[in-house]
């Protein structure tokens, strides 16, 4: 039986919780063989393959909820602080390179100090650096040395989450508003 190109790398990346990004040559093989991989992960492990236009990942029934919650918190606070700082936060998340020192500034002067201090991943500069390493292992950020990082297109999972969350709230708070955002 012949397997798609980069089969081993694709499987071990996805099973390691990584996002495979469109910039990665493995992505083409994953996308070209989407039907095979969908079946492969479903039949072998009961996992779902989620394939978007610029990234792919797998999901199990049991998920890393705590990590996901921490990531959402991180994005929420960062976006909020960027906006407060007068930045177009969406552009920053998409294109800018972040320095840990600047992120530290935002988190240390944030109005959400309570949430930050109660979160082991986010409470100190050191823990945030560890957290970014965790995100890098999953291809959610790419590190540039020890001091800088930028987000990969996987950020969309969490930004979409916020938009959906808002949609819910907006619809619930004003039923007359029928527009789809």
């Amino acid at each position: 039986m012949e397997f798609p190109r980069y089969h081993k790398e694709i499987v071990s990346d996805l099973m390691g919780g990584k996002f495979i990004l469109a910039s990665d040559q493995k992505f083409i093989s994953l996308k070209d063989n989407a039907a095979f991989y969908e079946k492969f992960f479903k039949e072998s492990f009961g996992y779902e393959l989620e394939l978007k236009s610029d990234y792919g990942f797998i999901l199990s029934y049991e998920t890393g909820e705590q990590l996901s919650r921490d990531i959402c918190l991180f994005f929420a606070i960062l976006c909020y602080e960027l906006d407060k700082d007068g930045k177009n936060f969406l552009e920053e998340i998409q294109y800018a390179e972040f320095e840990h020192e600047k992120v530290d500034d935002y988190f240390e002067n944030s109005a959400y100090a309570d949430l930050i201090n109660n979160n082991n991943q986010l409470k100190s500069g050191e823990s945030r650096r560890d957290f970014i390493r965790t995100l890098a292992r999953r291809n959610i950020v790419e590190r540039n040395g020890d001091q800088k990082f930028f987000f990969t297109p996987a950020y969309k999972v969490f930004i979409d989450f916020a938009a959906d969350f808002a949609k819910d709230r907006l619809q619930n708070s004003e039923p007359a508003l029928e527009e789809e955002y």
Partner: peptide, 16 residues
């Protein structure tokens, strides 16, 4: 778009 996303995050931060 940005306001929608921020609304979502702010609502989320109320009870994460």
């Amino acid at each position: 778009t940005e306001s929608v996303i921020l609304t979502g995050f702010i609502e989320f931060l109320k009870a994460p």
